[in-house]
Design a protein around this nucleic acid. Sequence first.
DNA 1: TGAAAAACATGAGAATAGCTCATGTTAGTG
DNA 2: CACTAACATGAGCTATTCTCATGTTTTTCA
Lengths: 211, 211
Amino acid sequence: MHVPASTEGIVRRRPVQRRSQERFDRILDACARLLDEVGYTALTTKEVARRAEVPIGTLYQFFPGIDGLLGALAERNLEHFMDRLTRRMEAERPSDITGMVDLAVEEYVAMHRAVPGFGVVDFGAVGREDAPSMHLLDSVLENNAAVADRLWALLGDLIGGTDRAAARISLHVALECADAVLRLAFRSDPEGDPVLIAECKRLLRGYLSEG
Amino acid sequence: MHVPASTEGIVRRRPVQRRSQERFDRILDACARLLDEVGYTALTTKEVARRAEVPIGTLYQFFPGIDGLLGALAERNLEHFMDRLTRRMEAERPSDITGMVDLAVEEYVAMHRAVPGFGVVDFGAVGREDAPSMHLLDSVLENNAAVADRLWALLGDLIGGTDRAAARISLHVALECADAVLRLAFRSDPEGDPVLIAECKRLLRGYLSEG
DNA sequence: TGAAAAACATGAGAATAGCTCATGTTAGTG
DNA sequence: CACTAACATGAGCTATTCTCATGTTTTTCA
């Protein structure tokens, strides 16, 4: 935890030249698509490499294995989500919690529909490797915490109360709940069950506004 | 889905003789402990068999593979949890939602502390194999739905409103949230972060009582 | 510009995992 | 006591993970 997550742990080596950057992305794309098709358990590095049209050695040049691959995918999803959310926040400038919640939920839903593999990994913690040993992957574990950090920076001042630390925790709790309920919404309906999506918004509004 | 889950899917063959029943349980115990030690990704059938002191063939006699093993573990956890919760509900007979929520959360927390592997699989959906293909494991997927069913039978009439269908959905949503927040509580503190546990109760009370 | 350094590419193959199945043993049953 | 169903076993086939030695391309900078 002494070095920023972006330079260690999750990936072995980050590509610096254009060609390998493209291959890096192709590998993640292939991984995401395959995840949608066969699921987590049946995912293999060989098949990911085959689909990405890179030799297996190249995959291991960048990623330490399946865990790292999924971690990197989650990381990319997070960046993608934050970009979209930031853009919409700037465009629509919601002033209250209701508007903010609706926006965030809608963006999440949109990504679920549009981004391959998002339903399986979203922002991380797929395999839930949070075993005590924790021999690898320190970074992925607290991925939702990272999301909370980013969201906090983006919209923390909209969340109620004078106790900022408590508000920070509320945001994190709200995020975990939203993740869980929206997962459920997409498990029961590939397009996202509208009833559950509405229920998610209601839950978040109530929780975040009572401070 | 035409046959009850207890006779298909999750396990290959259910032991009927005492000796094999014990081995069945030993395998699940070993799986749970190993899960705590090495995490989901590093879990291997060979090592589970070794720890349970059964030959690998015996493991595959009962379980169709790692997925089934984890599914069966989750199923056992659920039975365990429902037994405990039912007992406490009968003993203390909470009359309102607050009492009910506190009880359920406390039992969940107690299991997290006491039952090996609970933090990783709790009631299921570990690998989140809910890919479109869904070639195997129809039963595990909707495991939290099964929990919701059991809870509904146990305490559905305590949950507010006249719309019973809506109350049923609220219960399921609340369950998913509780699962997520309590997982978080144990991720940040092996004994379960008290602040997050309290926050979980507050969230559930608010959500379930505004119905 | 030219050569040293850094980044990148490759795939055979060692180590290991998942899982099967043929063969044998034990427990219930009439 | 014979007969059947349940149970036990582990060598071994297939498939997977991941390494590493070797070679190529790109970048750097004196």
